[in-house]
Design a protein around this nucleic acid. Structure first.
Lengths: 338, 338
DNA sequence: TATATTTGTGCAATCGTTCCCGACATACCG
DNA sequence: CGGTATGTCGGGAACGATTGCACAAATATA
């Protein structure tokens, strides 16, 4: 039905050969300016676009990069995606976004998919469930460029770009302590995730610095990153059922903050009177909460931009890159009503 | 660097021709089961994937569909995208998501991009700024299948799938009236958008049914759909500056609701004491607001699913389709704290 | 045994583009 | 006037996969 025009069409119409037309459009020096003009005018007239599939086949690259995130509804990721697109479009790359919904299986399927779509590189933030990165290591070993952001895999030797999770967690926890809370719980994502480890470490350091012993029972992991409402509800319930129950929670992510607030609302627990909250979040909507919760904001847009620049550098590098960089960006703490 | 294996590689390794290998993998009856097994085993071993560019070039289709939405951070759209992907993946199609950020220029650029990427079809929700759909009509006339959802273009004769905006708006406005409000303003997106018209119509009908005269000054349009904070702020300020200022607002969208609440928070206006709000929203986060606002929820996931089914039917139809359908799905009203 | 039929495989064209190579002109120099 | 530059252009192979056609070998039929 929909037949775009080709070089051959132009060549036939103008009585030239396809090679001449191709060269004219690429502005090669060996074509007379008269012919060039002729071809270019006609191409513009019929709105000629080179077939990207033919190009990809010939050039052996697709000028597109694949993105693996947990979900676009998460404001951290939607902002990161905006950063990714801003750079990618500039450099002539297309962006293919896939969502894992924190599922390891989906991550594998999406990885398969993207590599079969012959993307030139991958931007990856691991899913909460992912513990084994063999599927990515395989592709990396075969030479597919990839850059990790946010949730990184240490086993794979490549660029990483993350927020300073340890420091952000430290600041948020310190803030809770300085506001007067002592019994601070920590609700976080699955234990093997890099961000979970780093945030837990910042939380622990803040407690230690104030000589507050760490209560292991105060630390609750959600293996699916809060994608299942029950896991959040169970974790919160367990905290509330403790005889020495916490008076504040440091929450490690957006999805978890929302889940947490939902549970509190359901149980009619008031924030911050009954339970104070501070947490990682890039959602402007959460700021509307009254009283708003103190939040650590990550430079998501910038992280997306830098990751994309690094990836495109890898892709376009003429020789294999062996020196990799780990870039850490500072977070900012927004203190609200606490 | 990254060289995927090809049919030729398999053929060479097994001492066969590429055609035999191709046929063996496609499980044609004219290949001996012994050869088939041999080829399939080896293909699996080296993890062979057919080159999608070569396939697209040959088949003259890419098995991918393009999506045009305003932004993925909007929960309505992220849910719709989940619906789209659920169907598309099932039927072997890939989804390329592009964001317009409510900008007409970006919509044009993205449309260009998608058509040049030779997608097999388009799923479109118009941007707030878009008044002229010539760029889409051009492609539609050339035979590119497209389906509109949410914000539709009446000028283009194809399938449409939308929520019952008129009824939803009627119910929300009626609810405000029945709760006791009489001076109900309406904050909405740009005037030419289909959803704006329909929601305005429902709003008007509710007022008329309760014999409340329509005050044109109560109706505020945001030409950029609330993407610029100032347009929302100005609109709200104008409402507040009126001598007979409204006591309630019916808001036509998610982004606008958020913008609206931000302005109220800044001006220290309490909801619903100083100003009641009811509006279209698919955000679960807004539900956390205390007191929550009454919201009209659209079946976004389902809308995405149906739109995708319709599009794939168009794409795979053997003969040109001339009969088009307009599907209207009911919204649901969530009454909260008012 | 000779011919017809089935079965298994290879050749080559095709999709749209780029690019190496060679074919012409025209121009210039000795 | 013969030979070398130079400037323009066309022919054809290649990228990876599919597929109609041809053709060989194996089997069935007369």
């Amino acid at each position: 039905m929909f037949e775009p025009s080709t070089l051959k069409d132009i060549a036939k119409a103008l009585g030239l050969s396809t090679s001449t037309v191709s060269r004219a459009l690429r502005d090669t020096h060996e074509i007379s300016s008269r012919t060039k003009q002729l071809v270019m005018d006609y191409a513009k007239k019929i709105n000629y676009r080179p077939n990207p599939n033919a190009l990809s086949l010939k050039e052996r690259r697709s000028k597109s990069i694949g993105v693996l995130v947990s979900e676009v509804a998460n404001h951290y990721f939607s902002q990161a995606i905006n950063g990714i697109e801003s750079i990618a479009y500039d450099k002539g790359y297309h962006v293919i976004i896939t969502q894992t919904h924190e599922s390891y299986d989906r991550e594998k399927i999406n990885t398969e998919y993207l590599s079969s779509r012959s993307v030139d590189g991958l931007l990856i933030s691991l899913s909460a469930e992912t513990d084994d990165v063999a599927h990515l290591k395989y592709l990396h070993d075969k030479g597919l460029p990839m850059v990790f952001f946010d949730r990184v895999a240490e086993e794979i030797d490549t660029h990483q770009i993350v927020a300073n999770n340890e420091k952000g967690a430290f600041e948020a926890t310190s803030h809770l302590i300085e506001t007067g809370y002592r019994k601070i719980a920590h609700l976080t994502s699955s234990a093997h995730l890099s961000i979970s480890k780093e945030r837990l470490s910042g939380y622990s350091r803040a407690l230690a610095q104030h000589n507050i012993p760490i209560n292991e029972d105060y630390i609750k992991h959600c293996p699916h990153g809060g994608m299942f409402h029950e896991e959040v509800e169970t974790a919160i319930q367990e905290l509330l059922d403790m005889k020495d129950k916490p008076d504040a929670i440091f929450v490690a992510g957006d999805r978890l903050s929302i889940g947490c607030l939902m549970v509190f609302k359901k149980l009619n627990i008031k924030v911050p009177e009954d339970m104070a909250i501070a947490g990682f979040s890039n959602s402007d909507v959460l700021d509307l909460m009254s009283p708003s919760l103190t939040s650590i904001r990550q430079p998501a847009f910038e992280i997306g931009q830098i990751a994309t620049e690094m990836l495109i550098n890898l892709i376009e590098s003429r020789y294999p890159v062996t020196e990799f960089e780990k870039k850490v960006l500072d977070t900012s703490l927004f203190i609200r009503n606490t």
